[in-house]
């Protein structure tokens, strides 16, 4: 297993069981994982001292009804890699064709694909920051 201990990932999903599963899976891959249940907790983490490397977000959060969260995130950490983990049918509601934003369809078996995308994005982001 690669050593990814340096990366901190914020997971935001309204469903605690989904959060727990993602946390377990990603932690088993060696990431540091912080769960967030709503946009308030996301913003709290974003504005805390802990540096974030990546955000996995299902925008269908309890307190998010609009795209304000994307603006706030972009204002605070413009280059934060963002994985939107949501349903295909809702995809059109979210930002598309934006750098550092990747959409992963939420499905029963999406966990493997999600892990690959996360690894790829972190790697690319790391390379970008070195250059």
């Amino acid at each position: 297993m690669e050593n990814r201990s340096g990366f901190t990932i914020l997971i935001a999903d309204r469903n605690p069981n989904v959060r727990d599963l993602l946390k377990r899976e990603l932690m088993s891959d060696g990431y540091r994982v912080i769960p967030a249940k709503d946009s308030r907790e996301i913003l709290k983490q974003v504005f805390s001292r802990t540096p974030l490397d990546l955000l996995i977000l299902d925008p269908d959060l309890v307190t998010v009804g609009d795209t304000a969260i994307f603006e706030k995130l972009n204002n605070r950490i413009p280059r934060l890699p963002l994985v939107i983990h949501s349903f295909q049918s809702d995809r059109s509601q979210y930002p598309q064709d934006v750098k550092n934003v990747v959409f992963v369809e939420k499905e029963g078996n999406s966990i493997e694909h999600l892990k690959k995308v996360v690894a790829k994005m972190l790697k690319r982001n790391q390379e970008d920051s070195y250059n």
């Binding site: 469903n15 989904v18 029963g108 999406s110």
Partner: peptide
Amino acid sequence: IRNPLTSVKMRLFS
């Protein structure tokens, strides 16, 4: 329903 259902599907896969 979709939200918990997806969670179930994920757990089943796991």
